[in-house]
């Protein structure tokens, strides 16, 4: 494993830890999109089906389980925790799942490495991950007072795929049999989606101002 991949994984892990801490410490999920969290749950379930069929490494297995358990914990808190669920911005979090899920499903059926259930679901998870942040970004735009932890969460989540791109460049150059075009294109799309957010995040950080996204 190269340093970019490890940094990407750690950033991804850190983003989830930040989110868990924020919700748990403040007893509030204000500014967090349940739709994005549920889309990530779908992404992880579809991608990590190979937990049952293919052992890669202890690291790999443990990380997959952490991502699954933490995402379902967040969803559980946002839906059912008696204090936290009240703080969910239900009226603002209006993005429609089907606008993201259906195109990704069609694309996965058409563009995949192999037409098998496992492979199509895996490819679907790659496409869906690229766009799953959109409900969260829309919600952030509608939130007047974005708290620091929510901003940091989205920043870390965006950084993770950007670091993966460096990892892919590195692997492309060092590993002969490593040509994952579908993954690369999706990862680049995923990172591009964050560019606007990155711009305002860095600007607010440099000017020492509170983060806000223009509507």
């Amino acid at each position: 494993m190269n340093v970019f991949r490890l940094a990407g994984d750690m950033t991804h892990l850190l983003s989830i830890i930040v989110l868990l801490l924020k919700i748990n410490a403040t007893r509030s999920c204000r500014g967090i999109s349940l739709k994005t969290q549920e889309l990530y749950a779908v992404v992880f379930v579809c991608r990590y089906l190979d937990l049952f069929t293919n052992f890669i490494s202890l690291y790999n297995t443990v990380m997959k389980i952490i991502f699954l358990v933490s995402t379902f914990t967040i969803i559980y808190w946002m839906r059912f925790h008696k204090v936290i669920r009240v703080t969910y911005d239900r009226e603002q979090d209006t993005f429609r799942y089907q606008f993201l899920v259906l195109p990704c499903l069609v694309l996965a059926l058409l563009l995949n490495n192999e037409f098998t259930a496992m492979e199509v679901l895996w490819t679907f998870s790659i496409y869906l991950e690229a766009v799953a942040i959109l409900p969260q970004l829309v919600l952030l735009q509608r939130t007047n007072n974005i708290d620091n932890l929510t901003g940091n969460y989205v920043f870390l989540l965006g950084s993770y795929r950007a670091l993966y791109i460096l990892n892919w460049v590195y692997r492309f150059m060092t590993e002969k049999h490593y040509r994952q075009y579908l993954v690369w294109i999706s990862g680049i799309v995923q990172t591009i989606i964050y560019i606007d957010f990155f711009y305002y995040y860095i600007k607010s950080w440099r000017n020492n101002e509170k983060l806000s996204l223009p509507a």
């Binding site: 991949r5 994984d9 991804h12 190979d50 293919n54 890669i56 490494s57 790999n60 990380m63 997959k64 991502f67 490495n113 192999e114 895996w122 993966y164 990892n167 049999h177 490593y178 040509r179 994952q180 075009y181 579908l182 993954v183």
Partner: peptide
Amino acid sequence: VQEKILKDEL
């Protein structure tokens, strides 16, 4: 068509 790809990433 791609080769059978290595799925060791998360």
